[in-house]
Design a protein around this nucleic acid. Sequence first.
DNA 1: ATATAGTTTAACCAAATGGTTGACAAATGT
DNA 2: ACATTTGTCAACCATTTGGTTAAACTATAT
Lengths: 203, 203
Amino acid sequence: MISEEQSTPENNILNAAKEIFQKKGMAAARMQEIADEAGINKAMLHYYYRSKELLFEAVFKSAFSMIAPQLNEIMNADTSVFEKIRNFSSNYISFVLKHPYLPNFIIQELNRNPDFVKNLIAEKNFPNISKFKQQVTEKVAEGVIRPITAEQLFINIMSLNIFPFIGAPLLKGFLNFDDEAYKKLMEKRKTEVSDFIINAIKI
Amino acid sequence: MISEEQSTPENNILNAAKEIFQKKGMAAARMQEIADEAGINKAMLHYYYRSKELLFEAVFKSAFSMIAPQLNEIMNADTSVFEKIRNFSSNYISFVLKHPYLPNFIIQELNRNPDFVKNLIAEKNFPNISKFKQQVTEKVAEGVIRPITAEQLFINIMSLNIFPFIGAPLLKGFLNFDDEAYKKLMEKRKTEVSDFIINAIKI
DNA sequence: ATATAGTTTAACCAAATGGTTGACAAATGT
DNA sequence: ACATTTGTCAACCATTTGGTTAAACTATAT
């Protein structure tokens, strides 16, 4: 499957729109600004994507599809619970270090319009965690990991990996860290997060 | 100190503004909507608070001051590291269950304008975690808790407590939970989060 | 060459938005 | 009783914003 990023006008616009929407959010983003970023006339935005709403939807779906398959793949792989935790943490943190605005964008817009999740669920590749749930339940029953519901564990994994990016401005303030020092902390978390989680549940 | 919520026009406006700003964010909030919510004329907003920006700042500071002192108090109390973790988790989750829009509002607006943190730091009551840091370092040296930097532990505590609220729409989708089921999960987390953290660091 | 379809632009438009004004009412002080 | 300050409102204003239009330009097919 060839999926080289092509340089069509649609793609050009989409990338510009991503840049602006992800930095400012739907409401604060301006169509003119997106046009400037793309180096084209504002009317072109409406020619290729009919409205701000539709352009936004395209951006959002594209953004979501950068994250969801990763999660899905790891959670449904033929690996142990511990390996899944290690893979997801390392994988996700590496990814977000390259796309720092992504998680906040997705979370923010889902909070603005919670019904949007329903659309996403319908789509193929929407993360399914039933296999992970089954594995956890099994291991708890076997007495290999401490009693915990798969749901709580899943929430913990997501929290420990995602929040440090979304809450970065606040955490930098509390810790009195500059950008570089904070980034180093994040690098370390690629392994420290999974160690922390595994320590918490391993007997 | 008497701090009963007074029913002055300023307060009335501030509460209405909180409602709207926290639900929609600065950019999407409309002055007319705030006026309607407060049951007054739009001109009154400008009479009491000069501009949207200033009204927003008042709301933001008020919101932040509902959370910061709690954190500060707990972190600087004369209690053990474990007790601090237990107190913060139980305390914070209870609080946010009553103010569900607060954490997302603060995080979102700080991401929109990271420089805003500098203002907050200058204010009295801005959380100071040096005592907590010292306690953690000490306990690690004593071999009572596993090696971890105080910063990473602090980030973990914040993540596990805050993210489940900010990421609620997404997590509800992944877990296929409705509002009520999700709220029950949160209730359980009042104690489960601290157990999880303590298990992760206790030797 | 010429018609046809697709692409790009400058100029334009209606609606929405933050903010102002001037008149009027309600307290407040003397 | 009267003047002055403070509070409230409907109407208004300038600007911004998403979106449209009609004309021009480009490529492609015949």
